[in-house]
Design a binder for these strands. Structure first.
Length: 481
RNA sequence: GUCCCCAUCGUCUAGUUGGUUAGGACACCACCCUUUCAAGGUGGCGACACGGGUUCGAAUCCCGUUGGGGAUGCCA
């Protein structure tokens, strides 16, 4: 495939970027980049009732946060959006009206004057009769003329032919065919004059020279309508690829209500965009071997529609978290410091220098999934413990612990504060007192951190420094006895 | 109801031309390491929805059943 590969992501600005949409956008992006093609962003805002202020900005913001830059579309190139603009359907109205008129003239479409009530009744009867065919909405010629003369509102409908088998060779599903007899006369132009998805989509994909339509599986059933439109309008057919759906844990189509579905939700929870992308890329695609960690560039290198699955995939938060943990571990410390610092300021825990924070991060990053967990699980790196974990006290702080800790502190004072040396002192002291080193190790951890869990004790002490440690040990002997 | 799509461990999946002890990852369990917790290592648990064909041989091909999902909007 050459540079005339053109794909598009065409979201409706009804709020936010759905993770399913992100996956669709990602596959389109990967396909475009892989083939040296063009990735277009088109805003499908033909439904005035669902218009949400700021949704387009939020959408673009989420896309950019993930690093999916588009070549054409609103704001793609600063002042200029691209050669096939405008890229908002609300700005392309004439095109749709022109196409609808053309279809009207050629007899592929007709004006329909049915009322909502009539339509509802037709649907009910259709279902009651268990009839497999098309909804019979066409009015006799004279009745249409009469209603038109009465000035009744109308829509433009596609006049679906009888007895045809409409099939397409889908890039992920192979040949899919549907009989035209069961395809309804799709509304093309609504009574408010705006086009429906079906018309606008086909007109724009053609006008924007889209070569591959890569979209969600929910569009597969309407594919025959689109085929008919391409044909009636005399457009060349693009290639189609219908992607498997992203699912809730109950296998229904991924939706709000059963968890977070907006990219911005995950951004707020401080997932790394790389982790989200990596995770979402593997929902429906894999490279065919055991590798799992992929940067965007590596995905571009490996991606192929041939390896896209047919069945839906459950969005599994645990796996996403695992990816995030992996990414956190390979992150440059400087970046994590930058994430950590505002959290500390927010908690009013004061200022800490980079070197100190870097050490804390090194000790903690293998134990957490998100940077924000570092101050949560490791508050003791920043403030003295104000209480001691009850269970740990019960288990580790014996009657003699207070005196032992006092003797240990005395011996430690003024000595080397390197982890290795500390370890030597602990072991030596234990030997002297003829007890297990654990009798010092556990109470010390408790005294210094307030908890029974955490990083390697000696390294933790080294990082914390002599002053903090001795102060805390003495405080603990007072409080715990 | 009707139409379309789908079907391998709990989850994501490998398996692309029929012959594998059906592989990996997440999660879970055990052990090792660590006198903590993680991480890491080792091992374990765990799947071809069912029934018919075709074939010497089927997870793989065909048919049916069942199950799941999607569509059926003047939403996209």
């Amino acid at each position: 495939m050459s540079s005339d590969t053109r794909v598009r992501f065409a979201p409706s600005p009804t709020g936010y970027l759905h993770v399913g949409g992100l996956r669709t956008a990602l596959y389109n992006y990967l396909f475009a980049r892989k083939h040296g093609g063009t990735f277009v962003l088109r805003i499908e805002d033909t439904d005035r009732k669902r218009f949400v202020e700021g949704a387009e900005e939020a959408l673009i913001d989420s896309l950019r946060w993930c690093g999916l830059d588009f070549d054409e579309g609103p704001g793609a190139r600063g002042d200029e959006d691209g050669p096939y603009g405008p890229y908002r359907q609300s700005d392309r109205q004439e095109l749709y009206v022109a196409a609808a008129n053309k279809l009207l003239e050629s007899g592929h479409a007709y004006r329909c004057y049915r009322t909502d009530d009539e339509l509802q009744q037709i649907r009910e009867e259709h279902q009651a009769n268990k009839s497999p065919g098309r909804l019979k909405v066409r009015l006799p010629e004279e009745e249409s003329a009469r209603r038109a003369a009465d000035g009744m509102p109308s829509v433009v409908r596609l006049k679906v032919p009888d007895g045809e088998t409409l099939s397409v060779n889908d890039l992920v599903r192979g040949e899919v065919s549907i009989s035209s007899d069961i395809v309804d006369d799709q509304i093309l132009l609504k009574s408010d004059g705006f086009p429906t998805y079906h018309l606008a989509n086909v007109v724009d994909d053609h006008a924007m020279k889209i070569s591959h339509v890569i979209r969600g599986e929910e569009w597969l059933p309407s594919m025959p309508k689109h085929l008919l439109l391409y044909r009636a309008l005399g457009y060349e057919l693009p290639q189609f690829a219908h992607l498997p759906l992203l699912l809730n844990s109950d296998r229904s189509k991924l939706s709000k209500r059963q968890g977070d579905v907006a990219v911005e939700d995950y951004r707020e929870k401080s997932f790394y965009p790389e982790a989200l992308l990596n995770f979402v890329a593997f929902l429906g695609w894999n490279p065919g071997d055991d590798r799992e960690m992929f940067s965007l560039d590596e995905l571009i290198e490996e991606f192929s529609l041939k390896r896209v699955n047919k069945s839906g995939a459950i969005f599994n938060l645990e796996k996403l978290s695992w990816f995030n943990q992996q990414y956190l571990r390979e992150r440059p410390v400087a970046e994590t410091i930058g994430q950590l610092r505002p959290l500390l300021t927010e908690k009013g825990w004061g200022e800490f220098d980079d070197a100190y924070l870097a050490e804390v991060i090194e000790l903690m990053k293998e134990r957490v999934t998100f940077p924000y967990e570092i101050p949560e699980l490791g508050s003791y790196f920043f403030v003295d413990p104000t209480e001691y974990d009850e269970k740990t006290v019960k288990k580790r702080w014996k009657a003699e612990s207070g005196e032992r800790m006092t003797r240990l502190a005395e011996r430690l004072e003024g000595g080397s504060w390197k982890a290795d040396d500390l370890e030597t002192v602990f072991k030596d002291q234990a030997e002297k007192e003829e007890i297990g080193a654990g009798q010092f190790i556990h109470p010390t951890r408790l005294a210094v951190s307030g908890t029974g869990v955490g990083p390697s004790l000696y390294h933790m002490l080294e990082t914390l420094g002599e002053e903090r440690c001795l102060r805390r040990i003495r405080k603990a002997t007072e409080v715990l006895g």
